[in-house]
Design a protein around this nucleic acid. Sequence first.
DNA 1: TAACTTTGAATGAATACTCATTCATTTTTA
DNA 2: TAAAAATGAATGAGTATTCATTCAAAGTTA
Lengths: 214, 214
Amino acid sequence: MQKRAKIAKTPGKREKNKELRRGQLIRATIRSVARRGFAETTMADVTKEAGLSLGLVNLHFKSKDKLMEETLRYLSEEYESACYAAMASAGPSAADKMRALVELDFSPKVCDRRKLAVWFAFWGETKSRPTYQQICARNDRRYEKIITDLCQEIIEDGGYTGISPVTMASGLSALVNGLWLDLLMTPEDMPVENALQISFFFLSHAFPNHFTSA
Amino acid sequence: MQKRAKIAKTPGKREKNKELRRGQLIRATIRSVARRGFAETTMADVTKEAGLSLGLVNLHFKSKDKLMEETLRYLSEEYESACYAAMASAGPSAADKMRALVELDFSPKVCDRRKLAVWFAFWGETKSRPTYQQICARNDRRYEKIITDLCQEIIEDGGYTGISPVTMASGLSALVNGLWLDLLMTPEDMPVENALQISFFFLSHAFPNHFTSA
DNA sequence: TAACTTTGAATGAATACTCATTCATTTTTA
DNA sequence: TAAAAATGAATGAGTATTCATTCAAAGTTA
C-alpha cells in the first residue's frame, strides 16, 4: 500500500526517461521520413538520427509499424492542440477564431515542409493501412466539427443564405490540404503568402461581411 | 533497306508485344500500389498481379525504381489526355471547358479510389525522390497553365474585378486535390456529389455570371 | 547511511528473413 | 536457324527483430 502510493505519486527518473526516449524516437522518425521518405526509412536511420542504439525502437514500441503509428498519433495530437491554443488566444467571435485557424495552418509551426512531407507520406500509405485510416479519420472528423460549428455561427451572425456550414467547412479544409500539397511539391510556385491569400479569398467570397481578401 | 523500312513502318508483333507487356506491368503496378501501398509493393506482387513471370520487370524496365517512375508518367499522361479530350468535347466557351474539366475530375474515370490511392502514394514519396518531383511538377505546371488561361478568359468575358487568374487557378486546383484526399480517406463523409457541389460553389462565388452552385 | 539486491533500460552483434536482381535455360518469333 | 522474349530458381544485399550482456536506478536491509 505505502509502496504503491509512492510509485504513483512521483514518476521517478526511470519513468521520465522512458517518455523522453519515446519522444526522442518519434521526433527522429519525423526527421527521417521527411528526409528519406516513408518507404526508405529504416530502424537504423531512426535510431542513428536519435543518437540511440539500434534495439531501442523494439524495446519502446515493440515494432517498426507501432513506431510509425505512434508518430502519426503524435503529429495528430500536436496539430489538434495547436488548433485549440490558436482559438483560445484569438478574439471572441467565430470569425476571429476562423481567421486564427487559417493563419495557424500557414504558420511556420504547422506549415513546415518537413512536417508536410511526413503528413503526405502517411496519407500515401493510409489507403492500405486500416490503423492509419482510423487515426486520420478520427482527426479529420474532429477538425471538421470545429470548422463547421464556426461556419454555422458566422452564417447565423451574417444572415448569409444559400450556404451550408458543412459544405463551407469541407471546402475550406480541402482547400487548405490542397494548398499544403502545392507548398510541398512546388514551393517556388506557391509561397506561403499566396496560400494565405487564396484561403482568405475563398472565405471573403462566402462571408463578405466577415473577411476581406487582403 | 527493305527490312529496315518495314520495321520502321509497322511495329511488328515483337514490338507490339513489348509495349503490351509494359502496359500490363504498369497497370498491375497501379493495382498493387492501390491494394498494398507503395512501401509494401514487391516485384513478386506486380508480376503475379500481371500474371507474368518474376524476371519480366527487370527485362522491360531495368529496375523497380524505373517501373515506378514509368507508372507515374503513365498516370500523368493519362490524366493529361483526358483533360484535352474533355475540353475538346465541351462547349466552345471558357466556362464550358472549365465545367468539363471539373466534371472530369470527379468522373469515375479519373476519380476512382484505386487511382487516387496511387496518386497520393506517389505524392507521399515525392519529397524524397527528385525524379518524381520533376514529373509531378511538370504536370502541375501544364495543368495550372490551362486553368489559368481559362480563368483569364472568363474574367475578361465577365468583367470581374479583384480576381487574379493565377490565384483563382491555384485555388481551384488545390481545392480539387484536397477533395480527392477526402474522397480517398473518408469516402463515407464525402460523396462525389458533395465534392462536385463544393467545387461549383467555389466557382459560382468567384464567377457568379458563369457558374451556379446547383 | 552504507552495503547489497533487484529491476529494467540500453546496447549492438548475431539472427532470420524479405526481396530486388541476375542468369542459365526454355519458348516464341521472324 | 538466329535473335529476342520469357521463365523462375538461385543469389546476395539489406533490414527488422532478437537476445545475451552491461549498467544505472530503485528498493531492501542492517
